[in-house]
């Protein structure tokens, strides 16, 4: 009977070494979103030389912590190292592919995310990789493909995530029905009446200021012309004033065109962020 206690103690201790304890502590820090300290603890766990499976998990957690704290280059390095590691299991490599895809998506390099998510998609029965590919499509301005991917991911997902994915598909469909301001129309409107293009795109104050500046310089040009035509008979300042007016009118046209493009980009960007927030909420 006296021999049983030391044996039981030994059996209990053999399952958890110092590396396990450190990684467990780091997991707690990750849950608290204390990413920098979590990275330190995972690196400490790596230093303590855990078994290969635990080593890959620690490296993936470091990559995840770097991504969530918006340090994308080290995130790519750690996830990439797992992907290249010969000792990483198929499940680890699957996680590394997803992690690299999510990192490139967060880094706004959607085209780089696609090959990794494509590799992860066939083995992913939860539909998360499909949804992440939908995010990449949305970032690359393929809304129809993104909608189709979200619908496909919703069919695979559990009930909690299905609502978010269905919402994403519906939001994209609603956005596709919206016709944003046309840059060509905005430019044409500003050509006829300075500032009208900006107002058409929803930037009314910009339009008022553009109208004020161009109208003031145009009136000054007329005044100079009248004075120089009638009094000095030399149109030097008229040409200067007309050039300045032309420059301000050109700025008004460029601004109208760019403002219309900005409104369309901003609407798409707001949609992309809202969809990403809902879809990535179900990150495994």
């Amino acid at each position: 009977m006296m021999m049983i206690w030391p044996l039981a103690l030994l059996l209990t201790m053999s399952g958890s070494g110092p590396g396990h304890d450190t990684a467990g502590f780091a997991d707690g820090l990750m849950r608290q979103r204390d990413y920098f300290r979590a990275i330190t603890e995972y690196k400490r766990a790596l230093y303590e030389d855990p078994e290969p499976r635990e080593r890959s998990r620690c490296m993936l957690q470091i990559a995840r912590a770097y991504r969530r704290s918006a340090h994308f280059e080290p995130a790519v390095q750690y996830a990439g190292a797992v992907l290249q590691s010969s000792s990483a299991s198929a499940a680890d490599q699957q996680d590394a592919n997803v992690e690299l895809g999510l990192t490139y998506l967060a880094w706004q390099r959607a085209q780089l995310a696609v090959p990794f998510l494509d590799s992860a998609e066939p083995a992913d029965s939860s539909g998360f990789s499909t949804a992440a590919l939908g995010l990449a499509d949305l970032a690359m301005h393929h809304p129809a493909k993104a909608r189709e991917r979200f619908s496909r991911a919703a069919a695979l997902a559990d009930s909690a995530r299905r609502a978010d994915l269905t919402w994403a598909a519906d939001a994209i469909a609603s956005d596709e029905a919206i016709r944003g301001p046309s840059p060509a129309t905005a430019t044409l409107l500003s050509l006829v009446l300075p500032g009208a293009g900006q107002a058409y795109s929803g930037h009314v104050y910009d339009g008022v200021q553009a109208l004020g500046f161009v109208a003031t310089f145009a009136l000054a040009t007329v005044a100079y012309y009248r004075y120089e035509h009638d009094v000095t008979h030399h149109l030097g300042w008229t040409f200067v004033s007309a050039s300045v007016t032309g420059m301000f009118h050109a700025a008004n046209l460029v601004g109208a065109h760019r403002t219309a493009q900005y409104r369309n980009w901003k609407r798409r960007e707001d949609l992309r962020q809202a969809v990403a927030e809902r879809v990535l909420r179900g990150e495994p």
Binding site: Q198, D206, A210, F213, F248, A251, N252, G255, R258
Partner: peptide, 9 residues
């Protein structure tokens, strides 16, 4: 022109 648009409009 981009600078005028930004700074004045």
């Amino acid at each position: 022109t981009l600078f005028i648009d930004r700074n004045l409009y």
